[in-house]
Design a protein around this nucleic acid. Structure first.
Length: 136
DNA sequence: CGTTTGACTACGC
DNA sequence: CGCGTAGCCAAAC
């Protein structure tokens, strides 16, 4: 797959992006991965579609106590990626519920309603990321 | 130092 | 809708 040329830097970028997600909104591993460039625009398709997994790796290593809203990142299916019923899954669901993000009977959110639109232009410029309309 | 393990996703059934 | 699989390698054991 695509893999971070510099994992440390990649992880830090992921965390910065996650901090941009406002309360009440959720993003996905794939959405975040698609924002990070360079690389994902030129990467072969077969490599590119594995990038989200690295976002998952970054999330696993999320530093605590740095006010990073890790719970606002879910998978592309709109559901929590921790095993259903696990303590971590319950915690994530609880934190999201506090922000008004609800899951349906199938354990999925309505992306159309609570999906994050993406970071603002100033943030993109600061990190040198590509604007959403240039992303695939 | 060898083996196992992922906070993923698109796609086929 | 749900389940299984390929792709792919840095961490965690």
């Amino acid at each position: 797959m695509f893999y971070p040329p510099n994992p440390t830097e990649f992880f830090a970028t992921v965390w910065e992006i996650v901090q941009q997600i406002p309360p009440g909104s959720v993003s996905s591993y794939g959405q975040i991965a698609s924002m990070i460039s360079p690389g994902n625009e030129t990467e072969p398709e077969r490599m590119r579609h594995l990038a989200p997994r690295w976002v998952g790796t970054a999330m696993r290593k999320t530093p605590r106590g740095k006010s990073i809203p890790w719970h606002r990142v879910i998978n592309s299916q709109g559901s929590i990626s921790f095993p259903a019923g696990s303590a971590q899954a319950e915690e994530q669901r609880r934190l999201l519920a506090l922000e008004g993000v609800a899951f349906d009977a199938n354990g999925k959110v309505n992306f159309a309603r609570v999906g994050w639109r993406g970071p603002d232009a100033a943030f993109l410029r600061r990190l040198g990321l590509l604007p959403p309309h240039l992303l695939k």
